[in-house]
Design a protein around this nucleic acid. Structure first.
Length: 688
DNA sequence: TTTAGGG
DNA sequence: CCCTAAA
């Protein structure tokens, strides 16, 4: 069952079979209704199989394959079974050094040998999946998938026959190896390491390990495979104009952990490749940070610290950059925001160093605010709040939001300094605005008094925070636009880099925004000020901004007000800190259209697929969002136009929503009925 | 991790 | 949008 499931999901990433699988609800109901019967059947079946296996194992010394350890194969290829167990650590290391391909590759001899059909299917699936995931980039190489498979099978046979697998492969007869070598220019050890991290999540299928020979083989091919399967396509096959064209330039990025990060413009394969790594890092850090509070962060190992500071680099890990030797990457996904507020709660008096480690990576800014709780005065202020109307505190320093800088290794130190200076100047010069945050919420109304805003000396100063924000208001680009989903996922990159260099800040982004006034900096800034007064206005403060500069210094998107924010909080009011709502991002009509189209084709109940199809580029939309949007769309469509709110959705679209909803509901109903029928017939069979 | 569904 | 049970 599990392998079946993998198969479905694995392929669905890029391929959308016309025939939908039964939604989980149906499957669920099915299994539920027939629990008893199925269980009975299963047990009987199991018992029978177990009996058979037992008999076989008694009659054959080497047929103890029930656990799929590949021992049978080992025996035949002349490696002692005992060795197997010792080899396990070695083996997995081998696998992880290379790409996922090895992990499917190695077990094959055993699989073939044992004639385990499923063992063959699984690796093939994974392999296919890889090809798809990376946009079939390998296809562009000199060898095709077929070659790959051929090489694979060929080698398996070699092992099969003589166990001299390694010598034959190393002899250069491998199709694959030759082809790859043509394509690969250089593969550094670093890339290997990065790859290892990225591909750890791919299934290490099965277990067979032949010490020595294969290990060697794997290492030889690790470079090839890893480069092809993960890194290589990203900048060689898939056009990445903004990266490619500026490889020799300095790049600056404001650290941004929001969804509007580099990833928004990244190719999807890259996004996925980072997924697991991210989560791991997230969990690790979360574990550390939530165990008490972040004061323990300095206990992090050195490499983990550097990871915080260099996290952004991981997005560019296949390209040259300063700090090229930085080894470990801890990539923290956007969900991580939940941590931040909590963390900053105890920032007072922290040393800058420790603060940076655990906090600045989060918000890109360091806060050192020391409230003056001057002994007696503030003490009395606590009890007699109104007697001391003064709010006293000092801001020791603001850190400049973290910059991402990329320069060629051949650059001089001097020019690096200048680059950094340019970067800093371009930020400060463009103006920053200070924002006020209280108890985790932005205080936007500038006209309120501190008292009205709840900033008083009597205790909540530790929830007072300040943010450095770009003084212009970012435009919210809708990545979806009119482009069909199949179009290049890098549209935004194109747009950004094609923009003529200009000393004047431009904010126009590829957007389906119909309001041209939003593209003007001044105008928009005004808008922001106006709108900021009104908390009900659905303005979206977290968006991408590109500021092409005239000195080839590019601030990569994401000057993001929220990302720069430092929100103080304390574990006490952790409720508001731990779960801040994501900023509202109303779906545009174009997005709705894409959603409708995807659902029409894929049906309801496959939200992950729908999401990928309709919002591949929009990382801030999750499948839950998509599903929720559909829910509201269905609702919207079923109410009168007068009752609707927000941006009006064309009636035509709503009609399609209703139609699709009706259609797929019917389909699900049918499937449910079929499932019931099947169940009934099974019951009858069992009874008879 | 995904889906479904309530809030 | 959030949360969470269930698979």
């Amino acid at each position: 069952m599990s392998s079946k499931k993998r198969l479905n999901y694995g392929f669905s990433g890029c391929q959308f079979p016309v025939i939908p699988k039964a939604p989980r609800s149906v499957r669920r109901r099915h299994s539920h209704n027939n629990l008893d019967n199925d269980q009975i059947c299963a047990f009987e079946l199991l018992a029978a199989v177990a009996g058979e296996l037992l008999q076989e194992s008694e009659s054959s010394a080497c047929s103890n394959v029930a656990e799929g350890k590949g021992e049978l194969a080992e025996c035949r290829v002349g490696v002692k079974c005992e060795q197997l167990k010792e080899d396990k650590p070695v083996k997995s290391e081998c696998f992880s050094q290379g790409s996922c391909v090895e992990s499917t590759y190695i077990p094959e001899p055993a699989a073939l040998e044992q004639n385990f059909k499923h063992s063959l299917d699984k690796p093939n699936h994974v392999e296919n999946n890889i090809f798809h995931r990376h946009n079939c980039s390998i296809m562009n190489s000199d060898f095709s998938q077929k070659d790959w498979s051929c090489a694979k099978l060929e080698n398996c046979k070699k092992v099969d026959r003589g166990g001299k697998f390694h010598t034959e492969v190393e002899g250069g007869s491998s199709n694959l190896e030759n082809a790859c070598n043509k394509k690969i220019e250089t593969v550094t050890q670093k890339q290997l390491d990065d790859d290892r991290k990225q591909t750890d999540d791919l299934t290490v299928a099965n277990s067979c390990s032949v010490k020595g020979p294969i290990e060697k083989h794997v290492n030889n091919n690790a470079a090839i495979n890893s480069d092809n399967s993960v890194q290589f396509p990203l900048y060689r096959v898939v056009p990445k104009p903004s990266f490619g064209k500026q490889r020799n330039n300095v790049k600056l990025g404001i650290r941004d952990d929001d969804e509007n990060s580099f990833r928004s413009y990244s190719h999807s394969s890259k996004i996925r490749a980072f997924r697991k790594t991210s989560r791991i890092g997230y969990r690790r850090i979360k574990k550390i940070l939530t165990s008490r509070h972040w004061r323990i962060a300095p206990q992090l190992k050195d490499c983990e610290r550097s990871c915080f500071n260099n996290r952004v680099k991981s997005f560019y890990q296949n390209r040259k950059r300063i700090c090229a030797l930085e080894r470990c990457r801890v990539d923290i996904p956007s969900k991580r925001r939940k941590l931040s507020h909590y963390n900053s709660a105890v920032a007072y008096g922290q040393q800058a160093s420790s603060e940076r480690k655990s906090n600045s990576h989060e918000k890109g800014i360091k806060r050192d605010i020391i409230p003056h709780r001057g002994s007696g005065a503030s003490a009395s202020a606590k009890t007699h709040q109104k007697k001391d109307p003064c709010v006293k505190f000092s801001i020791k320093s603001f850190n400049i939001p973290e910059l991402f800088i990329e320069v060629p290794e051949t650059e001089t130190v001097g020019s690096l300094k200048r680059s950094v200076m340019e970067a800093v100047k371009s930020i400060l010069g463009n103006g920053l605005r200070v924002g006020v945050v209280l108890e985790g919420k932005k205080v936007r109304d500038d006209n309120r008094t501190l008292q009205q805003a709840g900033v008083s000396q009597n205790g909540n100063l530790d929830t007072l925070g300040f943010t450095l924000e770009p003084s212009f208001y970012p435009v919210s680009p809708s990545l979806l636009s009119k482009d069909p989903p199949a179009s290049s996922p890098c549209v935004a990159d194109h747009e950004l880099t094609r923009r003529p260099p200009s000393p004047i800040l431009e904010l126009e982004l590829p957007s389906d925004s119909s309001d041209p006034s939003k593209t003007k900096l001044d105008k928009h800034d005004e808008d922001y000020h106006e709108l900021a007064q009104s908390p009900t206005n659905p303005i979206d403060p977290t968006s991408n901004v590109a500021i092409p500069d005239f000195r080839a210094v590019v601030i990569v998107p994401h000057l993001n007000a929220e990302a720069l924010a430092v929100v103080p909080g304390s574990p006490k009011n952790s409720r508001s800190e731990l779960s801040q709502r994501r900023t509202r991002r109303p779906f545009s009509v174009a997005e709705v259209e894409a959603l409708v189209e995807a659902v029409e084709q894929l049906g309801t109940g496959r939200w992950r697929d729908v999401k990928i199809r309709a919002f591949e580029c929009a990382d801030h939309r999750t499948y839950v969002d998509v599903k929720d949007k559909w829910k509201t769309l269905v609702h919207t469509a079923s109410i009168t136009p007068q009752q609707r709110r927000g941006e009006p959705v064309p009636q035509e679209l709503l009609d399609r929503v209703l139609a699709a909803h009706a259609y797929w509901s019917q389909q699900h109903g049918k499937q449910h009925a079929e499932a019931l029928k099947m169940a009934d017939s099974q019951v009858q069979n069992v009874g008879a």
